[in-house]
């Protein structure tokens, strides 16, 4: 299992974007996601799932993710999550590069 080495950020607070901050999480706590969204009631579940799935698919654990969403589509959520993970020192799997 991989773990982030440092804290890193990707994405912006512009409309249709999402800001993702990845930091090393408490050991044993797994994937912890804190999500704020302008469309929380409408799409919060879908956004949460996209972040979780993206992180899990990369084999990452013990990670804390703080996400601030401004109406990003799922493809943007995935891209920003991967970027933040890479910037935090996670070696991304080949097929997503």
């Amino acid at each position: 299992m991989k773990k982030p080495v440092s804290t890193a950020q990707a994405g912006t607070l512009e409309s249709n974007d999402i800001s993702i901050i990845v930091s090393p999480g408490e050991p044993g706590k797994g994937i912890v996601i804190e999500l704020e969204s302008v469309v929380f009631d409408q799409f919060g579940q879908l956004i949460f799932e996209e972040i979780r799935k993206t992180v899990e698919d990369q084999g990452v654990t013990d990670v804390y993710i703080k996400a601030n969403d401004r109406g990003a589509l799922n493809c943007t959520v995935a891209a920003r999550t991967l970027t933040a993970l890479a910037r935090a020192g996670v070696a991304l799997k080949e097929e997503v590069l």
Partner: peptide
């Protein structure tokens, strides 16, 4: 960031 965003 741009590369991953475009890809997805």
């Amino acid at each position: 960031a741009a590369r991953l965003l475009l890809k997805h």
